[in-house]
């Protein structure tokens, strides 16, 4: 069984979270930092857009400012996500892209890593399944979205597991493509999204969610997760990458 590092449930703002993910990936170029799973939450809540997305078409910037939410662009493709401090756990996985556990084929690697989340959700009693390309659904509704990049010789996949979902809040900050925000739009969106609490009809704590996800990663990947910290080099990189993620040049590039 391989030992991987767990960076456990850090609560940080958007630029720090994205900088940590990229720093761990980048550090691998010049140091043997361990394969890593992170679990984290965003404070303040934030909206992230995919690398290729048009931010002005995806995000209601004024609404985010009004609520005090961060706005950030990811280095991964995929769609816009509302990271609700009170409603989701984000994970990331960073490992060399030639690691024997990780399929070289991108869609297969989504399936494997999403399998960890599916196993974790099952621990809680949520029956879910992988929906290619990069989603997990439970009861026909989306409960997790995922995105990955391959760079610096590593695979970096991050994604979100909904613990609770406030659909009104989601659609006050995200613009729905081609559909006017109306009661009707929200109702249909409500039918497309679910969360652990909504699915189970009971309160589930972040601690329970965290524990279940850790089990899912350990069992599916046959690894032992050992709590750890960032290396000094990674911390230096975080400071550097944060500047990029905070810059308008990066966030509003498209």
């Amino acid at each position: 069984m391989d030992d991987w590092r767990l960076i456990d449930m850090r609560i940080e703002d958007a630029s720090t979270q994205m900088a940590i993910d990229e720093a761990i990936a980048y550090a691998r170029v010049s140091e043997r930092n361990p394969n890593t799973i992170r679990l984290y939450r965003w404070n303040p809540s934030a909206v992230s857009v995919g690398y290729f997305q048009s931010i002005l078409n995806e995000v209601d910037i004024d609404a985010c400012k009004k609520f005090g939410f961060d706005i950030i662009r990811r280095i991964t493709g995929g769609g816009a996500v509302f990271h609700d401090y009170n409603g989701e756990i984000t994970y990331s996985l960073i490992a060399p892209d030639d690691d024997p556990k990780i399929p070289r084929d991108i869609v297969s690697s989504y399936k494997l890593i999403c399998g960890c989340l599916i196993d974790g959700l099952k621990e809680l009693g949520v029956e879910s399944e992988f929906k290619p390309i990069n989603d997990i659904i439970a009861g026909g509704r989306k409960i997790s979205g995922n995105a990955q990049t391959r760079r610096y010789g590593v695979i970096l996949q991050h994604g979100t597991v909904l613990v609770d979902c406030d659909v009104n809040k989601i659609f006050s900050v995200l613009k729905v493509s081609g559909v006017k925000i109306s009661d009707k739009a929200i109702k249909s969106a409500e039918e497309r999204v679910t969360s652990i609490r909504k699915y189970l009809g009971k309160d589930v704590s972040f601690e329970e969610g965290r524990n279940a996800l850790i089990k899912g990663f350990e069992n599916r990947l046959n690894i032992q997760l050992n709590p750890g910290e960032l290396t000094d080099y990674e911390k230096t990189l975080v400071t550097q990458f944060k500047k990029k993620y905070q810059s308008n040049e990066w966030v509003y590039q498209r």
């Binding site: 995919g50 690398y51 997305q53 493709g77 995105a147 760079r151």
Partner: peptide, 8 residues
């Protein structure tokens, strides 16, 4: 868009 292209 929300597609994926590697490298980005």
């Amino acid at each position: 868009g929300d597609f994926f292209m590697h490298p980005e």
